[in-house]
């Protein structure tokens, strides 16, 4: 067992991948609790797709991918916020238009360059084993910023998510808080790009948080349990990827999905098979 666990760690690229997977598992899952509680899953999925043109442009210019992703992520988070503020289009319609349009732009830009299919696969499904030391620093610093923001604005985010009218009567800066949350989601997507890729990003936001919601009854414990599930999925997924020779991003997501299914079936009191009364 020990050798089974230690064997992959002789490769430094796997150690880096493990650290990245754990950080992303934690950050995505913690922020994902708000995505789940506020019903923002479609928004999160859309935002992940809209950063593609930014990533491709950065890639073609030889910049760090995170820079391009961050710029596009924040811009589209703000853009979707403005579109839905106006109220002239339904929110999901507005998001759908932006989401599909920008994703198409990203694919079009990439198709004009050389190694189209391989590059696209990396962006869509992650390239966990290609994480460099520099990537790891970016992931760690941005991840720490997101967690710090979630911690500092904990009670305000809680009020805004639970009861928007209360937030108004307490005179909280609701617009600021809403945009801050959108930007934090955008930053988290950038952090997670290499680990799970654009197409599977949503799973890291939603799946651990959904499983945690069935096991807990307070937000802090929900965040903690979601983070544990996310981090464990990252590690277990990477080992599965190593020993079963499957792509790492999908492996991480499959582990998280498997945990969710177990919880969904067997959660004490709330699981399908163990429902009390």
């Amino acid at each position: 067992m020990m050798t089974w666990l230690l064997e992959p760690l002789q490769f430094s690229f796997i150690v880096r991948a493990l650290i990245a997977a754990v950080i992303v598992g934690i950050v995505c899952s913690v922020l994902g609790t708000y995505v789940v509680l506020r019903g923002m899953a479609f928004f999160g999925d859309a935002l992940a797709h809209t950063i593609l043109p930014g990533v491709v442009i950065a890639f073609l210019l030889g910049w760090p991918l995170a820079v391009g992703a961050l710029i596009f992520g924040v811009l589209t988070a703000l853009g979707i916020g403005v579109l839905t503020d106006r109220g002239s289009l339904k929110e999901d319609t507005a998001i759908g238009v932006v989401f599909a349009g920008l994703f198409a732009l990203g694919v079009a830009l990439l198709s004009a360059s050389g190694n189209y299919t391989l590059d696209l696969a990396h962006f869509l499904f992650g390239n966990l084993l290609g994480v460099t030391a520099g990537d790891l620093w970016v992931t760690a610093v941005l991840g720490a910023i997101v967690l710090l923001a979630v911690f500092l604005f904990y009670k305000e985010f809680l009020v805004v998510s639970f009861d928007a009218v209360l937030a108004v009567t307490l005179r909280l800066p609701t617009t600021f808080l809403r945009y801050l949350l959108l930007i934090l989601i955008a930053v988290t997507i950038v952090v997670s790009l290499q680990v799970v890729g654009i197409a599977l990003m949503l799973a890291m936001f939603v799946t651990p948080a959904a499983a945690a919601s069935l096991l807990t009854r307070r937000l802090p414990t929900m965040m903690g349990v979601a983070a544990l599930i996310g981090a464990f999925s990252g590690v277990a997924g990477l080992y599965a990827s190593y020993y079963m020779n499957i792509a790492s991003g999908p492996a991480v997501v499959l582990v998280a999905t498997f945990i969710f299914l177990i919880v969904f079936l067997f959660a004490p009191g709330r699981g399908v098979l163990l429902r009390s009364a």
Partner: peptide, 22 residues
């Protein structure tokens, strides 16, 4: 949303958030 993961005292504490401050 009565499924929201908050306890009774969490909900009542929300009323204090304005006074507590950022």
């Amino acid at each position: 949303d009565w499924g929201f993961p908050v306890t009774v005292e969490d909900v009542v504490m929300m009323g204090r958030v304005g006074q507590i401050g950022f």
